[in-house]
Design a protein around this nucleic acid. Sequence first.
DNA 1: TGCGCTTTGGACTACTCAGTCCTAGTTTCC
DNA 2: GGAAACTAGGACTGAGTAGTCCAAAGCGCA
Lengths: 198, 198
Amino acid sequence: MIAERGYTATSVDDVIRGAKLSGKSHFYHYFRSKEELGYEVLNRQFERFTERGLAILREPMIDPLERLSLFIDAVVALQVERGGRGGSPFGNLAAELADAHEGFRVRIEAVFERWASQIRSLLWEARPQLHDDVDAVRLSRFIIATLEGAVLMTRVKRDLGVLEGIAIDLKRFIGTHVRDGGAVVAMTASGSGTRGVE
Amino acid sequence: MIAERGYTATSVDDVIRGAKLSGKSHFYHYFRSKEELGYEVLNRQFERFTERGLAILREPMIDPLERLSLFIDAVVALQVERGGRGGSPFGNLAAELADAHEGFRVRIEAVFERWASQIRSLLWEARPQLHDDVDAVRLSRFIIATLEGAVLMTRVKRDLGVLEGIAIDLKRFIGTHVRDGGAVVAMTASGSGTRGVE
DNA sequence: TGCGCTTTGGACTACTCAGTCCTAGTTTCC
DNA sequence: GGAAACTAGGACTGAGTAGTCCAAAGCGCA
Protein backbone atom coordinates (compact mmCIF):
# COMPACT_ATOMS: atom_id res chain seq x y z
CA MET A 1 0.00 0.00 0.00
CA ILE A 2 2.80 2.38 0.90
CA ALA A 3 4.61 1.57 -2.33
CA GLU A 4 1.51 2.23 -4.40
CA ARG A 5 -0.28 5.07 -2.66
CA GLY A 6 2.62 6.70 -0.85
CA TYR A 7 3.60 6.91 2.80
CA THR A 8 1.50 9.92 3.79
CA ALA A 9 -1.55 8.77 1.86
CA THR A 10 -1.50 5.39 3.59
CA SER A 11 -3.05 5.64 7.05
CA VAL A 12 -2.44 3.25 9.88
CA ASP A 13 -6.15 2.45 9.81
CA ASP A 14 -5.81 1.49 6.14
CA VAL A 15 -3.01 -0.89 7.04
CA ILE A 16 -5.05 -2.38 9.87
CA ARG A 17 -8.04 -2.91 7.61
CA GLY A 18 -5.80 -4.34 4.87
CA ALA A 19 -4.11 -6.76 7.24
CA LYS A 20 -7.44 -7.61 8.90
CA LEU A 21 -6.15 -6.85 12.34
CA SER A 22 -8.54 -6.43 15.21
CA GLY A 23 -7.59 -2.87 16.02
CA LYS A 24 -4.97 -0.28 16.77
CA SER A 25 -3.62 -2.12 19.77
CA HIS A 26 -2.74 -5.08 17.62
CA PHE A 27 -0.78 -2.89 15.22
CA TYR A 28 1.00 -0.94 17.93
CA HIS A 29 1.92 -4.19 19.60
CA TYR A 30 4.35 -4.78 16.71
CA PHE A 31 5.29 -1.28 15.60
CA ARG A 32 6.15 1.59 17.81
CA SER A 33 4.94 4.08 15.21
CA LYS A 34 3.90 4.47 11.61
CA GLU A 35 7.42 5.64 10.88
CA GLU A 36 8.82 2.32 12.08
CA LEU A 37 6.42 0.48 9.83
CA GLY A 38 7.63 2.58 6.91
CA TYR A 39 11.24 1.68 7.64
CA GLU A 40 10.35 -1.99 7.83
CA VAL A 41 8.46 -1.81 4.53
CA LEU A 42 11.45 -0.15 2.90
CA ASN A 43 13.71 -2.89 4.26
CA ARG A 44 11.53 -5.65 2.92
CA GLN A 45 11.15 -3.99 -0.46
CA PHE A 46 14.89 -3.80 -0.73
CA GLU A 47 15.24 -7.44 0.32
CA ARG A 48 12.81 -8.49 -2.37
CA PHE A 49 14.63 -6.37 -4.90
CA THR A 50 17.92 -7.89 -3.79
CA GLU A 51 16.59 -11.40 -4.29
CA ARG A 52 14.73 -10.88 -7.52
CA GLY A 53 16.83 -8.17 -9.15
CA LEU A 54 20.27 -7.55 -7.78
CA ALA A 55 20.91 -11.30 -7.48
CA ILE A 56 21.28 -11.40 -11.25
CA LEU A 57 24.22 -9.01 -11.05
CA ARG A 58 26.11 -11.56 -8.94
CA GLU A 59 25.47 -14.73 -10.98
CA PRO A 60 28.96 -16.19 -11.19
CA MET A 61 28.54 -18.30 -14.32
CA ILE A 62 27.40 -15.57 -16.66
CA ASP A 63 29.49 -12.94 -18.42
CA PRO A 64 29.25 -9.69 -16.40
CA LEU A 65 28.00 -7.54 -19.24
CA GLU A 66 25.44 -10.15 -20.15
CA ARG A 67 24.37 -10.12 -16.49
CA LEU A 68 23.92 -6.37 -16.62
CA SER A 69 21.72 -6.75 -19.66
CA LEU A 70 19.69 -9.44 -17.93
CA PHE A 71 19.33 -7.24 -14.88
CA ILE A 72 17.87 -4.45 -16.97
CA ASP A 73 15.48 -6.96 -18.49
CA ALA A 74 14.51 -8.03 -14.98
CA VAL A 75 13.67 -4.47 -13.98
CA VAL A 76 11.48 -4.20 -17.04
CA ALA A 77 9.86 -7.56 -16.27
CA LEU A 78 9.17 -6.56 -12.68
CA GLN A 79 7.36 -3.49 -13.94
CA VAL A 80 5.42 -5.47 -16.53
CA GLU A 81 4.26 -7.81 -13.76
CA ARG A 82 2.69 -4.91 -11.94
CA GLY A 83 1.11 -3.59 -15.10
CA GLY A 84 3.26 -0.49 -15.02
CA ARG A 85 1.47 0.77 -11.92
CA GLY A 86 3.09 1.47 -8.60
CA GLY A 87 6.45 2.38 -10.00
CA SER A 88 9.62 2.00 -8.01
CA PRO A 89 9.04 1.87 -4.25
CA PHE A 90 12.40 3.55 -3.72
CA GLY A 91 11.84 6.28 -6.25
CA ASN A 92 8.36 6.97 -4.92
CA LEU A 93 9.44 7.26 -1.32
CA ALA A 94 12.40 9.33 -2.43
CA ALA A 95 10.23 11.82 -4.27
CA GLU A 96 7.79 12.03 -1.39
CA LEU A 97 10.07 12.19 1.60
CA ALA A 98 13.64 13.03 0.58
CA ASP A 99 13.29 16.66 1.63
CA ALA A 100 10.72 16.30 4.36
CA HIS A 101 11.91 13.34 6.41
CA GLU A 102 15.59 12.83 7.05
CA GLY A 103 15.13 9.34 8.47
CA PHE A 104 13.70 8.07 5.22
CA ARG A 105 16.15 10.06 3.14
CA VAL A 106 19.22 8.37 4.62
CA ARG A 107 17.63 4.94 4.32
CA ILE A 108 16.73 5.49 0.68
CA GLU A 109 20.20 6.86 0.06
CA ALA A 110 21.59 3.63 1.52
CA VAL A 111 19.38 1.60 -0.81
CA PHE A 112 20.68 3.42 -3.86
CA GLU A 113 24.21 3.17 -2.60
CA ARG A 114 24.01 -0.59 -2.14
CA TRP A 115 22.45 -0.91 -5.57
CA ALA A 116 25.17 1.23 -7.11
CA SER A 117 27.91 -0.72 -5.39
CA GLN A 118 26.59 -3.95 -6.92
CA ILE A 119 26.84 -2.41 -10.36
CA ARG A 120 30.26 -0.98 -9.59
CA SER A 121 31.70 -4.35 -8.65
CA LEU A 122 30.16 -5.87 -11.76
CA LEU A 123 31.78 -3.14 -13.82
CA TRP A 124 35.06 -3.84 -12.06
CA GLU A 125 34.72 -7.48 -12.97
CA ALA A 126 34.02 -6.57 -16.59
CA ARG A 127 36.92 -4.14 -16.72
CA PRO A 128 39.00 -6.18 -19.22
CA GLN A 129 36.15 -5.78 -21.71
CA LEU A 130 35.68 -2.07 -21.09
CA HIS A 131 37.47 1.04 -22.21
CA ASP A 132 40.11 2.28 -19.80
CA ASP A 133 38.38 5.59 -19.15
CA VAL A 134 35.10 4.07 -17.91
CA ASP A 135 34.09 5.75 -14.65
CA ALA A 136 32.30 3.02 -12.73
CA VAL A 137 30.89 5.38 -10.11
CA ARG A 138 29.39 7.68 -12.68
CA LEU A 139 28.13 4.91 -14.94
CA SER A 140 26.46 3.05 -12.09
CA ARG A 141 24.64 6.21 -11.03
CA PHE A 142 23.64 6.85 -14.62
CA ILE A 143 22.11 3.39 -14.96
CA ILE A 144 20.11 3.73 -11.76
CA ALA A 145 18.92 7.23 -12.51
CA THR A 146 17.82 6.27 -16.00
CA LEU A 147 15.95 3.20 -14.78
CA GLU A 148 14.22 5.15 -12.02
CA GLY A 149 13.28 7.92 -14.42
CA ALA A 150 12.08 5.39 -16.98
CA VAL A 151 9.83 3.64 -14.48
CA LEU A 152 8.36 6.98 -13.45
CA MET A 153 7.66 8.06 -17.03
CA THR A 154 6.14 4.68 -17.80
CA ARG A 155 3.77 5.10 -14.89
CA VAL A 156 2.73 8.55 -16.03
CA LYS A 157 2.21 7.54 -19.65
CA ARG A 158 0.71 4.18 -18.72
CA ASP A 159 2.73 2.65 -21.53
CA LEU A 160 5.19 -0.11 -20.82
CA GLY A 161 6.73 0.50 -24.24
CA VAL A 162 8.36 3.60 -22.78
CA LEU A 163 10.33 1.52 -20.30
CA GLU A 164 11.21 -1.08 -22.90
CA GLY A 165 12.49 1.57 -25.29
CA ILE A 166 14.60 3.25 -22.67
CA ALA A 167 15.98 -0.12 -21.60
CA ILE A 168 17.16 -0.73 -25.15
CA ASP A 169 18.85 2.67 -25.32
CA LEU A 170 20.41 2.13 -21.91
CA LYS A 171 21.95 -1.13 -23.05
CA ARG A 172 23.18 0.59 -26.16
CA PHE A 173 24.83 3.26 -24.05
CA ILE A 174 26.52 0.67 -21.89
CA GLY A 175 27.64 -0.98 -25.11
CA THR A 176 29.53 2.17 -26.08
CA HIS A 177 31.79 1.57 -23.10
CA VAL A 178 32.80 -1.84 -24.40
CA ARG A 179 36.06 -2.29 -26.24
CA ASP A 180 35.55 -2.94 -29.94
CA GLY A 181 37.21 -6.32 -29.82
CA GLY A 182 34.69 -7.87 -32.17
CA ALA A 183 33.79 -10.76 -29.89
CA VAL A 184 31.87 -8.71 -27.38
CA VAL A 185 28.36 -8.12 -28.59
CA ALA A 186 26.49 -8.95 -25.43
CA MET A 187 24.91 -5.56 -25.05
CA THR A 188 23.52 -4.82 -28.47
CA ALA A 189 22.30 -8.36 -29.05
CA SER A 190 19.64 -9.02 -26.43
CA GLY A 191 16.72 -6.69 -26.69
CA SER A 192 13.75 -7.41 -24.45
CA GLY A 193 11.85 -8.56 -27.54
CA THR A 194 8.19 -7.68 -27.35
CA ARG A 195 7.12 -4.10 -27.81
CA GLY A 196 4.24 -2.74 -25.78
CA VAL A 197 0.87 -2.31 -27.46
CA GLU A 198 0.07 1.35 -27.77
CA MET B 1 5.28 24.65 -1.36
CA ILE B 2 3.56 21.96 -3.39
CA ALA B 3 6.69 21.43 -5.48
CA GLU B 4 8.83 21.05 -2.37
CA ARG B 5 6.64 19.28 0.13
CA GLY B 6 4.21 17.53 -2.17
CA TYR B 7 0.55 18.03 -2.92
CA THR B 8 -0.91 15.99 -0.07
CA ALA B 9 1.53 17.32 2.50
CA THR B 10 0.66 20.93 1.63
CA SER B 11 -2.57 21.96 3.29
CA VAL B 12 -4.80 24.78 2.18
CA ASP B 13 -4.19 26.42 5.54
CA ASP B 14 -0.46 26.30 4.85
CA VAL B 15 -1.02 28.05 1.56
CA ILE B 16 -3.21 30.68 3.21
CA ARG B 17 -0.61 31.34 5.89
CA GLY B 18 2.17 31.41 3.28
CA ALA B 19 0.30 33.87 1.09
CA LYS B 20 -0.81 35.89 4.14
CA LEU B 21 -4.43 35.75 3.19
CA SER B 22 -7.11 36.67 5.69
CA GLY B 23 -8.80 33.28 5.73
CA LYS B 24 -10.39 30.43 3.91
CA SER B 25 -12.95 32.59 2.17
CA HIS B 26 -10.23 34.60 0.54
CA PHE B 27 -8.63 31.47 -0.84
CA TYR B 28 -11.88 29.94 -2.00
CA HIS B 29 -12.75 33.17 -3.71
CA TYR B 30 -10.06 32.36 -6.26
CA PHE B 31 -9.95 28.58 -6.29
CA ARG B 32 -12.89 26.25 -6.30
CA SER B 33 -10.85 23.56 -4.56
CA LYS B 34 -7.38 22.51 -3.56
CA GLU B 35 -7.31 20.38 -6.68
CA GLU B 36 -7.80 23.44 -8.86
CA LEU B 37 -4.93 25.17 -7.09
CA GLY B 38 -2.76 22.15 -7.83
CA TYR B 39 -3.60 22.31 -11.51
CA GLU B 40 -2.79 26.00 -11.61
CA VAL B 41 0.52 25.43 -9.85
CA LEU B 42 1.41 22.73 -12.35
CA ASN B 43 0.53 25.08 -15.20
CA ARG B 44 2.71 27.85 -13.86
CA GLN B 45 5.60 25.50 -13.16
CA PHE B 46 5.45 24.36 -16.74
CA GLU B 47 5.29 27.94 -17.99
CA ARG B 48 8.38 28.79 -16.01
CA PHE B 49 10.13 25.72 -17.29
CA THR B 50 9.11 26.63 -20.82
CA GLU B 51 10.57 30.09 -20.48
CA ARG B 52 13.74 29.21 -18.64
CA GLY B 53 14.45 25.75 -20.01
CA LEU B 54 12.65 24.69 -23.13
CA ALA B 55 13.23 28.11 -24.71
CA ILE B 56 16.84 27.14 -25.20
CA LEU B 57 15.79 24.24 -27.42
CA ARG B 58 14.21 26.70 -29.83
CA GLU B 59 17.00 29.27 -30.11
CA PRO B 60 17.24 29.72 -33.87
CA MET B 61 20.82 31.00 -34.12
CA ILE B 62 22.51 28.09 -32.36
CA ASP B 63 23.36 24.67 -33.73
CA PRO B 64 20.66 22.24 -32.61
CA LEU B 65 22.98 19.78 -30.90
CA GLU B 66 24.73 22.61 -29.14
CA ARG B 67 21.32 23.81 -28.00
CA LEU B 68 20.56 20.38 -26.59
CA SER B 69 23.79 20.49 -24.65
CA LEU B 70 22.97 23.94 -23.35
CA PHE B 71 19.52 22.78 -22.34
CA ILE B 72 20.99 19.97 -20.26
CA ASP B 73 23.30 22.53 -18.66
CA ALA B 74 20.27 24.67 -17.89
CA VAL B 75 18.51 21.81 -16.13
CA VAL B 76 21.62 21.31 -14.03
CA ALA B 77 21.85 25.03 -13.33
CA LEU B 78 18.20 25.21 -12.28
CA GLN B 79 18.85 22.47 -9.79
CA VAL B 80 22.01 24.10 -8.51
CA GLU B 81 20.03 27.30 -7.92
CA ARG B 82 17.71 25.44 -5.59
CA GLY B 83 20.58 23.77 -3.83
CA GLY B 84 19.52 20.36 -5.08
CA ARG B 85 16.39 20.46 -2.94
CA GLY B 86 12.87 20.25 -4.20
CA GLY B 87 13.68 18.22 -7.25
CA SER B 88 11.55 18.33 -10.35
CA PRO B 89 8.02 19.58 -9.72
CA PHE B 90 6.77 17.32 -12.50
CA GLY B 91 8.60 14.24 -11.32
CA ASN B 92 7.48 14.79 -7.74
CA LEU B 93 3.84 15.20 -8.59
CA ALA B 94 4.11 12.25 -10.95
CA ALA B 95 5.50 9.97 -8.26
CA GLU B 96 2.91 11.13 -5.76
CA LEU B 97 -0.24 11.21 -7.82
CA ALA B 98 0.18 9.27 -11.07
CA ASP B 99 -1.69 6.26 -9.77
CA ALA B 100 -3.98 7.93 -7.28
CA HIS B 101 -5.32 10.94 -9.15
CA GLU B 102 -6.19 10.67 -12.82
CA GLY B 103 -6.66 14.42 -13.25
CA PHE B 104 -3.07 15.11 -12.28
CA ARG B 105 -1.80 12.11 -14.22
CA VAL B 106 -3.11 13.31 -17.56
CA ARG B 107 -1.83 16.82 -16.93
CA ILE B 108 1.64 15.59 -16.04
CA GLU B 109 1.56 13.31 -19.05
CA ALA B 110 0.80 16.35 -21.19
CA VAL B 111 3.76 18.20 -19.67
CA PHE B 112 6.15 15.37 -20.52
CA GLU B 113 4.64 15.07 -23.98
CA ARG B 114 5.16 18.76 -24.73
CA TRP B 115 8.68 18.54 -23.40
CA ALA B 116 9.37 15.46 -25.53
CA SER B 117 7.94 17.06 -28.63
CA GLN B 118 10.33 20.00 -28.26
CA ILE B 119 13.24 17.60 -28.18
CA ARG B 120 11.83 15.63 -31.09
CA SER B 121 11.61 18.66 -33.32
CA LEU B 122 15.13 19.67 -32.35
CA LEU B 123 16.29 16.18 -33.26
CA TRP B 124 14.47 16.48 -36.55
CA GLU B 125 16.26 19.73 -37.21
CA ALA B 126 19.61 18.09 -36.40
CA ARG B 127 18.86 15.08 -38.57
CA PRO B 128 21.58 15.83 -41.16
CA GLN B 129 24.14 15.51 -38.39
CA LEU B 130 22.68 12.33 -36.95
CA HIS B 131 22.82 8.69 -37.90
CA ASP B 132 19.95 7.52 -40.05
CA ASP B 133 18.67 5.03 -37.50
CA VAL B 134 18.17 7.55 -34.69
CA ASP B 135 14.71 7.09 -33.18
CA ALA B 136 13.68 10.58 -32.11
CA VAL B 137 10.71 9.42 -30.05
CA ARG B 138 12.78 6.97 -28.08
CA LEU B 139 15.76 9.25 -27.65
CA SER B 140 13.61 12.15 -26.45
CA ARG B 141 12.01 9.92 -23.83
CA PHE B 142 15.40 8.64 -22.80
CA ILE B 143 16.72 12.14 -22.25
CA ILE B 144 13.74 13.17 -20.14
CA ALA B 145 13.72 9.98 -18.07
CA THR B 146 17.44 10.24 -17.38
CA LEU B 147 17.19 13.88 -16.34
CA GLU B 148 14.21 13.21 -14.08
CA GLY B 149 15.93 10.23 -12.51
CA ALA B 150 19.14 12.20 -12.08
CA VAL B 151 17.37 15.05 -10.31
CA LEU B 152 15.70 12.57 -7.98
CA MET B 153 18.96 10.80 -7.14
CA THR B 154 20.67 14.11 -6.58
CA ARG B 155 18.00 15.07 -4.10
CA VAL B 156 18.34 11.81 -2.22
CA LYS B 157 22.12 11.93 -2.10
CA ARG B 158 22.20 15.67 -1.50
CA ASP B 159 25.09 15.88 -3.94
CA LEU B 160 24.86 18.03 -7.02
CA GLY B 161 27.86 16.18 -8.43
CA VAL B 162 25.53 13.28 -9.15
CA LEU B 163 23.46 15.37 -11.52
CA GLU B 164 26.52 16.91 -13.12
CA GLY B 165 28.06 13.51 -13.74
CA ILE B 166 24.90 12.10 -15.26
CA ALA B 167 24.57 15.19 -17.43
CA ILE B 168 28.03 14.54 -18.84
CA ASP B 169 27.20 10.92 -19.60
CA LEU B 170 23.89 11.93 -21.14
CA LYS B 171 25.65 14.30 -23.51
CA ARG B 172 28.10 11.58 -24.34
CA PHE B 173 25.26 9.23 -25.17
CA ILE B 174 23.64 11.80 -27.41
CA GLY B 175 27.06 12.22 -29.01
CA THR B 176 27.05 8.57 -30.05
CA HIS B 177 24.10 9.35 -32.30
CA VAL B 178 26.09 11.94 -34.20
CA ARG B 179 27.69 11.09 -37.51
CA ASP B 180 31.46 10.85 -37.31
CA GLY B 181 32.00 13.63 -39.78
CA GLY B 182 34.89 15.09 -37.83
CA ALA B 183 33.50 18.61 -37.66
CA VAL B 184 30.74 17.82 -35.19
CA VAL B 185 32.08 17.83 -31.67
CA ALA B 186 29.39 19.86 -30.01
CA MET B 187 28.36 17.19 -27.58
CA THR B 188 31.63 15.97 -26.18
CA ALA B 189 33.16 19.42 -25.93
CA SER B 190 31.07 21.35 -23.40
CA GLY B 191 31.05 19.75 -20.01
CA SER B 192 29.42 21.70 -17.24
CA GLY B 193 32.87 22.32 -15.81
CA THR B 194 32.89 22.36 -12.06
CA ARG B 195 32.51 19.12 -10.15
CA GLY B 196 30.53 19.09 -6.94
CA VAL B 197 32.39 18.99 -3.68
CA GLU B 198 31.80 15.66 -2.00
C1' DT C 1 -1.17 -24.85 36.85
C1' DG C 2 0.67 -20.67 35.73
C1' DC C 3 3.48 -17.28 33.14
C1' DG C 4 4.06 -14.43 29.16
C1' DC C 5 3.10 -13.36 24.66
C1' DT C 6 -0.52 -12.46 21.39
C1' DT C 7 -5.15 -11.24 19.91
C1' DT C 8 -9.56 -8.91 20.29
C1' DG C 9 -12.38 -4.83 20.76
C1' DG C 10 -13.42 -0.54 21.70
C1' DA C 11 -13.33 4.03 23.85
C1' DC C 12 -10.81 8.15 23.80
C1' DT C 13 -7.55 12.40 23.07
C1' DA C 14 -5.91 16.08 20.59
C1' DC C 15 -5.25 17.46 16.23
C1' DT C 16 -5.51 18.39 11.18
C1' DC C 17 -7.98 18.31 6.93
C1' DA C 18 -11.01 20.37 2.97
C1' DG C 19 -14.71 22.87 2.44
C1' DT C 20 -19.08 25.86 3.81
C1' DC C 21 -21.40 29.76 5.56
C1' DC C 22 -22.14 34.30 7.19
C1' DT C 23 -21.28 39.20 7.91
C1' DA C 24 -19.10 43.40 6.90
C1' DG C 25 -15.91 46.63 5.08
C1' DT C 26 -13.12 48.12 0.94
C1' DT C 27 -11.77 48.80 -3.93
C1' DT C 28 -12.42 49.28 -8.71
C1' DC C 29 -14.53 50.58 -12.59
C1' DC C 30 -18.56 51.76 -15.52
C1' DG D 1 -23.74 56.66 -7.48
C1' DG D 2 -23.90 51.88 -7.72
C1' DA D 3 -22.78 47.20 -8.96
C1' DA D 4 -19.32 43.85 -8.88
C1' DA D 5 -15.26 42.25 -7.38
C1' DC D 6 -12.17 41.82 -3.56
C1' DT D 7 -10.47 41.64 1.38
C1' DA D 8 -11.19 40.56 6.11
C1' DG D 9 -12.33 37.48 9.98
C1' DG D 10 -14.32 33.95 12.17
C1' DA D 11 -17.43 30.03 13.35
C1' DC D 12 -18.50 25.64 11.97
C1' DT D 13 -19.11 20.69 9.93
C1' DG D 14 -17.79 16.15 9.13
C1' DA D 15 -14.33 13.38 8.40
C1' DG D 16 -9.84 11.62 9.06
C1' DT D 17 -5.15 11.52 11.52
C1' DA D 18 -1.53 9.15 14.87
C1' DG D 19 -1.36 7.44 18.98
C1' DT D 20 -2.93 5.98 24.04
C1' DC D 21 -5.27 3.30 27.36
C1' DC D 22 -7.88 -0.31 29.29
C1' DA D 23 -9.92 -4.83 29.98
C1' DA D 24 -10.64 -9.44 28.69
C1' DA D 25 -9.74 -13.27 26.21
C1' DG D 26 -6.77 -16.94 23.77
C1' DC D 27 -2.43 -19.02 23.30
C1' DG D 28 1.89 -22.06 23.81
C1' DC D 29 5.04 -23.90 26.69
C1' DA D 30 7.59 -25.26 30.98
